[in-house]
Amino acid sequence: METLIVLIQIGVSAALINNFVLYYFVGVCPFLGVSRRVDTAFGMGCAVTFVISIAALLSWIFTYYILRPGAPLPTQVWTALGGSPSVTVDLSVLSYIMYIFVIAASVQFVEMYVRKFFPPLYKSFGVFLPLITTNCAILFACLIIMKNLQDPSQLWGLHHAMTMAIGGGVGFTLAITLMAGIREELDMCDVPKPLAGPGIALITAGILAMAFMGFAGVERGIENAIAMLLK
């Protein structure tokens, strides 16, 4: 039950309280670029969620078994080659390069999957899918996983990492769809010429971020509610 509470906390935190776009500012480029219409925005959000989940899965596996300090595979190679067993083998300096490979592979995989099983969706995505490779949000999810696997006392399991990734993707989808809905209305308003386009979009994002600030403290409330329910 403790695990369930922790998972809910991680998920809600990633989706609402520390929203990837509106709190951590990752994924702002597609957020501003794709949020013109609600259906493309929702599609982009779903694509990002899909890619982020696969990338988080792969990067957790690589970080847990290869990259973190004291990881099993390099330690076995080290001792097999005759190294001293009291040394902590730490390959985490290769993390960023490894994550880039993982993200490129995930995007490639998702692109092949969508092309094979959902051709009309693939056509409507167009150039978006390769653009997700440079989406900060996915690398950011990998970095969170890396940070939480550095400290051996609070080692994140695969379930923590996947919850964070899916929660982050859901939060991104929520933010981008809300933004698209607002921008569709803004198209019919009389926006001052200098602010038209990215200017007013950023100001709207600021007001949206203020709204999302209201979620602070929600995780404590959920924790209390679940604890009361379980009594």
Partner: peptide, 18 residues
């Protein structure tokens, strides 16, 4: 806080555009 960042950048973008 985050909203300030968005608002400042949006307004400065508007100023540069103007």
């Amino acid at each position: 806080l985050p909203p300030g960042a968005f608002l400042t950048l949006g307004l400065l973008l508007g100023a540069v555009e103007w």
